[in-house]
Design a protein around this nucleic acid. Structure first.
Lengths: 206, 206
DNA sequence: CACCCTATTTATAATTT
DNA sequence: TAAATTATAAATAGGGT
C-alpha cells in the first residue's frame, strides 16, 4: 500500500529499511492495540530492530503476564527438543546481549554529541589503539611468562640440588657414624615450606 | 478500511467481534511477518482470543527465543538504571561483554558491527571495552604477580637452605679432614645457573 | 465458522519540503 | 535529515454463500 507494490523480502537499502521499519513497526503496534480493544483479546508484541532496539506492546499491564500465559499454554504440548537447541540458544543469547549492550549505550547518550571525526577516522584510531594495546599486552604477557618459567626452572634445579646435597650429607653422616660415631642431626634443616612437590599455582589464565 | 469507519472500542456484537477477530488477527500476524522480513527485525506476536485460544507468530524458530531476549533486555535495563556500584557484579558483566563482543565480531565478518553504530555509540562501546579490558588485564596481572612473588620467595628460601646445607657440608668436611684426612670435593655441586645473586628479570613493565 | 465480494478506509512507498 | 504530503496498495467492514 504505497506508490508501488513492494516485494516481501529484506530491504537492502539501509535508509529505506530504517524508514520502513519505523512506519510498519508503528502500524503493527497500532493494529495490535486495535485488535485487543475491538475483540477483547490479549495481545503482546515484541519487536527488536536489527540494531537491537526494543519496541513492544501489551494489552495488559505487563507483557510478562501474556508471556507467562503463553508458556503455560505451550507447556502442555511441549516436547523435549532442548538438547541441541540449548547450545544454539546460549550462543544466540550471548549474541543478543551484545546488541542489548549497544542499545543500553545508545540510551545512556541523551545528548547527541557533535562529531568531529568521521567514522572511518575513528575506526582507524580505534584500530591503532587496539593494536598498540594488544602489542603492549602481548609483550607484557610474554615477559611475565618468561619470568615465571625461569623462576619455575630455577626452583626445580634448586630442589634437585637440595636433594643432592641432602644425600651427600646423609652419606657423609653415615660414614662418619661408621667411622667415629659422630652424630649430626639434619632432620629439621629444610623449612616446612620447602616441599618441592607442592602444586604450582594455576596459570591457565594465560 | 471497510465499508464504514469503525470506532476503536470493544465490539459488543459477539458475531461481529468474532469475525473481526479472525480477520484482524490474520492481518496482524501477516504484518508481523512482513515487518520481520522487510526490515530484518525479530518479531514475536502472541494473541489470546477472549475465549482463550492462542495464536502466535515468531520470526525465529521459537517464540521463546525472542521472549527470553525480551527478558534479558528488561533485566539489562533494570540493571543500568539501578545502582551500578556492585563491584563484583559489574566486573563480571563487563568481562562477559567482552566475550560477547568477540563472538559478535567473529560472527559478523560480512556485515561489520560498526555499520550499525553511530560515532557516539562507538565511543561509548570503546570505553566499555577498554574498561572491561583493563579489568580483565588487571585480574590477570594480579594473578601473575602473585605467582611471581610466590615463586621468588620459594627461590629465596631454597637458596638459603642451599647455603645452609653447603655450610653444613663444609663444616662436616673440615672436621672430617681434621679428624681423619678424608677429602670430598663439593665445589662443582651446584650448577652454574644456580647463582642466587643473579639479577632478577626486570618487572618494571608491571 | 471460513471463505468470497467490493466499497471504503487505512497503511504506507515514494516524493516533496 | 526528518517530517509532511500524496498516490497507491493493502486491509477490512459489511454483506452474502
Amino acid at each position: 500500500m504505497g506508490r508501488k507494490k513492494v516485494e516481501i523480502k529484506r530491504i537492502e537499502d539501509k535508509h529505506s529499511r530504517q524508514v520502513t521499519f519505523s512506519k510498519r513497526r508503528k502500524g503493527l503496534l497500532k493494529k495490535a492495540k486495535e485488535l485487543s480493544i475491538l475483540c477483547d483479546a490479549d495481545v503482546a508484541v515484541i519487536v527488536f530492530s536489527n540494531r537491537g532496539r526494543l519496541y513492544d506492546f501489551s494489552s495488559t499491564n505487563s507483557l510478562t503476564e501474556i508471556v507467562q500465559r503463553y508458556h503455560s499454554h505451550v507447556e502442555a504440548e511441549k516436547e523435549s527438543s532442548a538438547e541441541v537447541l540449548d547450545t544454539e540458544h546460549s550462543k544466540y543469547a550471548s549474541f543478543m546481549t551484545v546488541r542489548e549492550l549497544l542499545q543500553t549505550v545508545e540510551r545512556q547518550l541523551e545528548e547527541p554529541v557533535v562529531d568531529y571525526l568521521s567514522v572511518t577516522d575513528l575506526v582507524q584510531l580505534e584500530n591503532q589503539l587496539q593494536t598498540a594495546l594488544m602489542q603492549a599486552r602481548s609483550s607484557k604477557t610474554h615477559l611475565m611468562i618468561e619470568s615465571i618459567k625461569s623462576l619455575g626452572e630455577k626452583e626445580k634445579l634448586l630442589c634437585e640440588e637440595n636433594k643432592h646435597l641432602e644425600n651427600q650429607i646423609a652419606t657423609t653422616k653415615n660414614k662418619r657414624e661408621v667411622n667415629n660415631g659422630m652424630a649430626l642431626d639434619f632432620t629439621n634443616l629444610a623449612p616446612a615450606s620447602m616441599n618441592c612437590r607442592q602444586p604450582k599455582a594455576t596459570l591457565n589464565f594465560l
